[in-house]
Design a protein around this nucleic acid. Sequence first.
DNA 1: GATCCGTGGAT
DNA 2: TATCCAAGGAT
Length: 351
Amino acid sequence: MRDTLKNDLSCALLDWYDRHARKMPWRVGPADRAAGVIPDPYRVWLSEVMLQQTTVAAVRDYFTRFTVRWPTIQALAAAPDDQVMGEWAGLGYYARARNLLKCARVVTDQYDGVFPDTYDTLLKLPGIGPYTAAAISAIAFDRPETVLDGNVERVMARLYDIHDPLPGSKPLLNDKAAELTPTVRPGDYAQAVMDLGATICTPKSPTCGICPLRDPCQARAAGTQPDLPRKLPKKPKPTRFGHVYIAQRTDGALLLERRPDRGLLGGMLGWPGSDWSEVPVESPPFAADWQVLAGEVRHTFTHFHLILRIWTAPLPVDMALDDLIVMEKHAFRPSDLPTVMRKAHDLWRNR
DNA sequence: GATCCGTGGAT
DNA sequence: TATCCAAGGAT
């Protein structure tokens, strides 16, 4: 009976996916896969890391730029750190980019450039956790692993009308998802559940009327689907303040810093500045007649709001400062900056 | 288990 | 404007 239900559900989902799979630059669609096209594990891995907590729309252009610039994992492994961090700038969660490079170098050096295919081996690699290990194993190698991301959590919570709040209900949701994972076409199936969650079984206003699982869905029968999955309340975000300092030489060169590898915006390029706190201390990188710009930069991170004041001064010739970078005009790209630093740059340029 | 870690779009 | 939240991982 359970097998029958499982087969009905997974077949309904695969059938829906065959007809409605979204096109994505990294995806080997059901028709291509059926025709024998084998996914490139490098592209599957890169896309899955980019997609961690990030929307498909935001990832698209980044994925294209990365794969044009670094078509293979060996090419990526050989890239200088600052080029990769610059290409990742704006996408957020910069630890992903640092771990991406670590992982590329491990696979290149220790696995001869060949991605491992098992969940347990993938899980040991930098930046690959339970979700991504299962996703790569299933999507790139068509192994019957169960992916559990936000989409699958939502689909399972509704399908079985589970009211226990996340994250405590995660093991139960994982059990439900694992029960449904078929041994045939597990890669397509993993993408089918996630596509369903992303397009039909959405967080708000799910379109149950056209859902391939509308009949067996227990939440829909109970009318509870808009309230699922339940989640524990989140903490409010405090507001912090800070100062940043933009100094430019008459030839256009700029004073920048490479942020330490750990912590917020780790490894990224930025403007020197104060700590970000309730009452920041003005801390210019060198003594000068600093002028504060009109306006301010407002930015919201994962766990706090930030309001920055921007100061500017001429950068003397031959100025050299510990841990700071004098970047020539031709070498500076605003797109290499994380978004909050690019906002400061834009305010300064439009002064 | 709780906290930290970005960003932009939708509502 | 405020909140949610998106194909999560590391510590």
